[in-house]
C-alpha cells in the first residue's frame, strides 16, 4: 500500500508560480495561432469552395480529393511532415499554415452548404439583371451565403483552438507545452495541467454559448 501521496493537496503557490508562463503562452501562441489560422482557413476555405463550383470538372475533382485527403488524415502527422519538409521555417509559422490549411478543408464544406442554400431565384435575378460573374458573386451570392455560415465557422474556430496543443509535437511552446515544461522543472504537474484545462474551458465554453445564440438569432431572421 502506498501512503496517501503528499501531492494530493493542491498547492496554490505552484499554481500562482506557473500561471504567468501559461498565460503568456496562451496569449502569444495559442490565441495567436487560433486567430491567424482561422483567418487563413476562412479565406482559403472560400477559395476552395468557389474552385469546386467554378473550375473545370477535372480541376474541381482533383481539388475535392486533395481536400478530402487532408480532412481524413491526422493534423499531427501533417504538422510533422511540414516541419521536417520545411526546416528553414519557424515551427510557429508551420503551425499557422498547417492549421489554416487543415481547417480550410472543413470550412470549404461550410461555404459549399452556404452557397447551395442561396435560393435559385437569386441566381436567376443576377442573370436577368445581366450582372457579371464577379458582381454576381461579390454583391449577391457571397453576402447571403456568408450569413448562414458564420456560426459554423465559429464552431470550427473553437475546435481549432482546442486542437492547438497538437503543436507541441513540433516543439512549439503553446499552453500545454508550457505547463509540461513547468511540471518537468518543478515536478508538479497537478497545478499547471489543471490550470491549462481551466483556461481552455473558460475560453471555449462562453464562446460556444455565444455562437449558439448567434445561430438562433440568424436562424429566426432568415
Amino acid at each position: 500500500m502506498t501512503p496517501l501521496p503528499a501531492a494530493l493537496d493542491w498547492d496554490w503557490e505552484s499554481a500562482f508560480e506557473s500561471l504567468p508562463s501559461l498565460l503568456s503562452a496562451f496569449l502569444q501562441v495559442t490565441l495567436l495561432v487560433t486567430v491567424l489560422s482561422t483567418a487563413l482557413a476562412a479565406v482559403l476555405g472560400l477559395v476552395i469552395a468557389m474552385t469546386l463550383r467554378l473550375a473545370p470538372r477535372p480541376v474541381a475533382g482533383v481539388v475535392r480529393w486533395i481536400a478530402h485527403f487532408i480532412r481524413m488524415t491526422p493534423i499531427v502527422v501533417q504538422l510533422l511532415f511540414a516541419y521536417y519538409a520545411f526546416l528553414e521555417l519557424e515551427p510557429l509559422t508551420i503551425g499557422v499554415l498547417v492549421f489554416g490549411i487543415h481547417y480550410s478543408t472543413y470550412m470549404s464544406e461550410v461555404y459549399r452548404a452556404g452557397i447551395d442554400s442561396v435560393p435559385a431565384g437569386q441566381w436567376e435575378a443576377t442573370t436577368a439583371l445581366s450582372m457579371s460573374t464577379r458582381r454576381t458573386w461579390t454583391a449577391v451570392i457571397i453576402p447571403q451565403a456568408l450569413r448562414a455560415t458564420v456560426p459554423a465557422l465559429g464552431n470550427y474556430a473553437v475546435s481549432m483552438f482546442k486542437d492547438t496543443p497538437f503543436l507541441l509535437v513540433i516543439g512549439v511552446v503553446e499552453m500545454v507545452n508550457a505547463g509540461l515544461i513547468y511540471g518537468g522543472n518543478n515536478f508538479r504537474y497537478i497545478e499547471p495541467i489543471t490550470l491549462v484545462g481551466v483556461i481552455f474551458l473558460l475560453a471555449s465554453y462562453p464562446t460556444s454559448l455565444l455562437i449558439s445564440r448567434l445561430e438562433k438569432r440568424l436562424a429566426y431572421r432568415t
Binding site: D163, P165, V176, L180, Y189, I190, S204, S208
Partner: peptide, 22 residues
C-alpha cells in the same frame, strides 16, 4: 467539461497528474 478542456490536456492529466495523485 469534457468537450471544453481539450483532448490533449485530458490525456496529459491522466498520464502526468493522476500518478501524482496515487
Amino acid at each position: 467539461f469534457f468537450r471544453g478542456t481539450s483532448l490533449v490536456v485530458q490525456l496529459f492529466f491522466y498520464f502526468f497528474v493522476l500518478p501524482q495523485l496515487g
